[in-house]
Nucleic acid binder design. Sequence first.
DNA 1: CTGAAAGCGCTTACAG
DNA 2: CTGAAAGCGCTTACAG
Lengths: 330, 330
Amino acid sequence: MTIEMVAKAAGVSLSTVSRILNGTAGVREAKREAVDKAIAELGFVPNPIARGLAGGRSMSIGVITQAIDSPFYGAALRGIEETLDPAGFSPLFVSGHWNAATEARCITMLHSRRVDGIIVLTGRLSDQALADCALQLPVVATGRTLSSPGLYTLNFDNFEGARLATQHLTDLGHKQIAFISGEDEHPDATERLRGYRAALEEAGLAFEPKLVVPGAYHEVSGMLAVENLLSSRQPFSAIFAANDQMAVGAALALHKRSLRVPDDVSLVGFDDMASSQFSLPPLTTVHQPNYELGQLAAQAMLQLLAGEEPQIEMPAPRLVRRDSCKRMRG
Amino acid sequence: MTIEMVAKAAGVSLSTVSRILNGTAGVREAKREAVDKAIAELGFVPNPIARGLAGGRSMSIGVITQAIDSPFYGAALRGIEETLDPAGFSPLFVSGHWNAATEARCITMLHSRRVDGIIVLTGRLSDQALADCALQLPVVATGRTLSSPGLYTLNFDNFEGARLATQHLTDLGHKQIAFISGEDEHPDATERLRGYRAALEEAGLAFEPKLVVPGAYHEVSGMLAVENLLSSRQPFSAIFAANDQMAVGAALALHKRSLRVPDDVSLVGFDDMASSQFSLPPLTTVHQPNYELGQLAAQAMLQLLAGEEPQIEMPAPRLVRRDSCKRMRG
DNA sequence: CTGAAAGCGCTTACAG
DNA sequence: CTGAAAGCGCTTACAG
């Protein structure tokens, strides 16, 4: 089933079929109809591989994620897949494993597979490397703000999100609010720390370094953080975890010490993972619109590909109140 | 950077470089060295797209999953990615959305992208459709047992897993064990129901239809199931949920009614999702080796591609005891 | 508007 | 063992 067979069936040349397929040139109506009919009858589907080799467009978009099984980015991948699909593009997912060298290898690989563009979900690549890459191929990157030719970035307001979360706690009367941080290498982690401090300040509360305990964005680190906090004997009535996974770990550590959420300690997370609404108790958290992030990133890519200038903005952070916080007694 | 430049640099013909790259023919040692050196110096990477067009092998494997963001299949996708990678193959993930027609479209698309084989994670495709597909391309399918040319299947013993889970409860002295089922269209759901009944029988317990409440494999359905169970006033001291997601929903419903796990009711899940060890309390469940499933499926594919007959078996089900069950009092 | 032809980067018979 | 050549299924200047 090739373009040649369609051409023969429609009584036109191979080039004409190609042009109709690509909308590359005006074609006489009669021929267009004949070709459309032949395509329909034969059930012809153009071969993206050959297209990629010949024309440069492979109709596929490389997507560099950190881990294909991330509970956090899953929704973004789905958003990308669902908006690319109607446009005829397929995503090619690869995992960077939070490693700049691996991400660089992914890019080489995606190049060799002739992707038409690359979407980078966060990642460790330097801004420079990203900008260089964008010189060859359109790229959309999330988790940073950068302006460079061929590059479009989409960033979430982590500062504001963290400020909102902390403010919720100060509004409830909490004065000793612990913060489980993320690693410093993550720009969003440092932004969230900034937001925490800003909210404290707004509430007229002093920043207490002993109340910030280091975490690493996964459950076990949240557990450990709470255990450390507890054994430090530093008093606290609420915890803001820099992401939901750590909040889940924190809840477990609290539970093991027979401390109840929210009666004994209030807990707020960040991300609003799919599972957080089913936590015990359902977790109050900052909603991060990952599904939309994926959709928007894909839309921006489609616009870049069409030669347009994307004008896409991320939605503002939003606090989702569930059952893990309580007004400070007394 | 093409094969031609390598050939020139090494002073051999283009065909020779290709042969060395593919191990297609014996080559004089001196030439091989020259070529290897040229490849290393130029940093040449063969273009899989061109390879796919010319030779038929695109070095990519289509993977049909149900949802790219499934918390359950994520580990399998990672297993596939990690075992395909060292062999030089890339996975091409597509989502079937539990719909046979969509899966069929995925297969057409994967064909047009010239994948070298297809891995189908469960899915709704008929056995016949799968067998037909395998006539053209090697296919590995999970979640069913089928023997057909070019097809290799990998199935998990859902019956035995469910039997183990239920037996754990009967061993603890529970006599009224509720079962939250999955939908009948899932063969594994019906197998799990069979396992539940078998364990009951072994323990000399009568099967009580009112104790089996329908679910749909997601959290909300688990919640609803428990609410229905509670309002039916049918007494029970333990629940076996046919998957972890429903167990999580069940735990939440119990919590809302101020029923404690495991003090008031014991709870067992099925799957051992990554998050289940962090449930409150950590969930006792049947471990389903998804990461290994992915690895094994990819290995089987690699063997099929090499013309070998895979002899791969799935690990046996295993109960993971955590803190959600307690001996029946009295 | 439309064809014939070259070419994308490889592989693989076909001849030595 | 190794080259020259055809071909994979398309796109895109190049000429009408």
